[in-house]
Write a protein that binds this DNA or RNA. Sequence first.
DNA 1: CGTCAACCTGACCAATTGGTCAAAAGAATT
DNA 2: AATTCTTTTGACCAATTGGTCAGGTTGACG
Lengths: 217, 217
Amino acid sequence: MLVPVEKPQSKREGLRRETLALILATAERIFADHGFKGATMQAIADGANLPKANLHYYFPTKQDLYRQVVERIFNIWLDAAESFDTQANPEQALGTYIRKKMEISRSHPYGSKVWANEVIHGAPIIHDYLETTLTEWTDSRIEVIARWASEGLIDPVNPRHLLYMIWSTTQHYADFSHQIATLNNGVPFNDAQWAQATECVTNIILKGIGVKRDAPS
Amino acid sequence: MLVPVEKPQSKREGLRRETLALILATAERIFADHGFKGATMQAIADGANLPKANLHYYFPTKQDLYRQVVERIFNIWLDAAESFDTQANPEQALGTYIRKKMEISRSHPYGSKVWANEVIHGAPIIHDYLETTLTEWTDSRIEVIARWASEGLIDPVNPRHLLYMIWSTTQHYADFSHQIATLNNGVPFNDAQWAQATECVTNIILKGIGVKRDAPS
DNA sequence: CGTCAACCTGACCAATTGGTCAAAAGAATT
DNA sequence: AATTCTTTTGACCAATTGGTCAGGTTGACG
């Protein structure tokens, strides 16, 4: 899904990519902090040290820019789910998936917030993504989880709700980072706290659905 | 926390309350669908069938109106946690709390969305609430959960992460209702689906933290 | 009925903001 | 060096929007 980065062909080409990346990163932050309407092209331009008119050269409209920001985090999430295919047993597959999702919450908090924002408001811009890509993706994972249940490897839970629980719990650490930091004496999680959160979330969910852990050392 | 409703003293008084309630309900919906900046006083006025100037008579500024909407859902959530005090054992206390939170997600989806929106954007308006009321409330519940753990009634989980999991999972059904509906053939949950979601969430979490169920029939 | 306060409302304004445009500057190519 | 295409930029505009205000209406109360 994520295309490999190719070498720039020329000075122009390289500069163009840098500028695009800078704009997207800045826009992600501004959109996350202020919402679609609250974010202004001027603020994004200032954040990227560009004149506003230059922004419109690369992204003709605010919506174009926004859409690319949303698509980016979506694809990152999709990639994180390869563990469903590569890992054989539920403990490995789900454990890896949850841990990856937690990592993404830490490394891409702004993207997660933009997505949350978009969906909360009824997904006006990326509605088609939900109906096509997300639906197909979800159905395929549900099938895998349902198979585990039918084979007795996990409790007979509704796969949909399991997925929702994984999504909501992991993304909460990104989307509600401000609330979490406030309840953490006003400072964001450090390495150890992130590790503990990841372990805690993974344990509760895996135990909650009764995964049969093979090779209990 | 929620003050009991008193009888209106006069025609004026009664009408005033109706108008206030209508404005708050409409504003909650508009703010949830469009965010603080995206919601316009004109849209709220139209939704409540009032002239915009009349809105400013009751709520001098947009921020005043917004703050009251946010405070409302916050107080509803606080009230839902009385089960921590009234229920003796963890299974009852947490089970009741989770079920109540799910009910609120169904009955007050707009309020939940407004809160999520606010926190995602760094809680610019209700920052003080997080630092005072929410911090105190959380600390007191953490104490209760920690006691259960020390008494061996539940696994030794970090109470903070348990709370976050309950919050995120239950509120997800409100905040991401559009995504959930889309993945549900485009229609919102019906009664049976809400019941199943509630049961599923409750079971996984309670089992996940290893609650000792007394009187296993 | 008369008075007063509360309530309602159309018209208006200043500030913000997404987007445009023409002209200049810079790179690539022949 | 000349030409062409891409990129940059300041100035500008039309539309939106939070909030104001003066004047009118309505209910409460003596």
